[in-house]
Amino acid sequence: MNRKLSFSWRNIKELIRDPLGYIFCVGFPLVMLIIMTVLDQSIPKDSVTVFHIEKLAPGVAVFGQMFVMLFTSLNVATDRGGAFLMRLYATPMTASDLTAGYILPMLIVSVVQSVITFTAAFIISVIIGSTLNIGAVLLSMLTLIPSALMFIGFGLILGVLFNEKAAPGMCSLIISLGGFFGGIWFDAESTGGIMLKLCKCMPMYYCTKAARSAMALDFGGSVFLLPVGIVIACAVVIITLGCFAFSKKMRADIG
């Protein structure tokens, strides 16, 4: 346990001392929150509901989690590239110590990121006179924990498969796809046809849908339970694949 916690602590320090971490994991989502609120205030009311703060905040929170994926992949890929992991392989640390040490701090970062995003969203909601329900905010944040794990799992896989130069590029691809097909910046439900089918193929769509339903305190089977179930299943599969990929890579490295 000590080894896992020590490695987690090391990874948290590495992340919080990287200025890019603040820019991408906190600054960028906040900027998007502000810009989209300004946009929402500038267009006719109810013409685009997705930018209303109660729908925007959960979407931006999911968007922010995708940057946690980027930093997870970068952390793993950099450690691999710089022989730091090789040093740790020669110690009594096991693959599970290492994977837990990558996952745990990123989960904490993701939760803190959600708290910051929703706090900012709450302040904005008060300013624009559309105050968010605090209970709904807390439920929405809870709903986002499985999706955080899923994105961390994606980051682990990409950090194992690609080097520190390629991994961020691959993450950017997922961020772009996720932003688009996740229904963060437009109402996927209103599109229908092939577009909606494509959105439904992406786990990000269910992350956004579940978090928005929680914010609306709508816990119906098709709008909350099903999306949450899909996100949890994806999180379990992706994080298991991530751990497996890391363990396999470790065995290959010392093969």
Binding site: R3, K13, E14, D18, G82, A83, M86, R87, T91
Partner: peptide
């Protein structure tokens, strides 16, 4: 055993003391 690899393999954003503390915790 202890190994100092070809690449220095230190944790770049940790201080000297933190790097040593981290490794000592890893070593049990």
């Amino acid at each position: 055993i202890g190994i100092s690899p070809q690449d220095t393999a230190v944790s770049p954003r940790l201080t000297v003391r933190e790097n040593l503390m981290f490794m000592s915790r890893v070593c049990g």
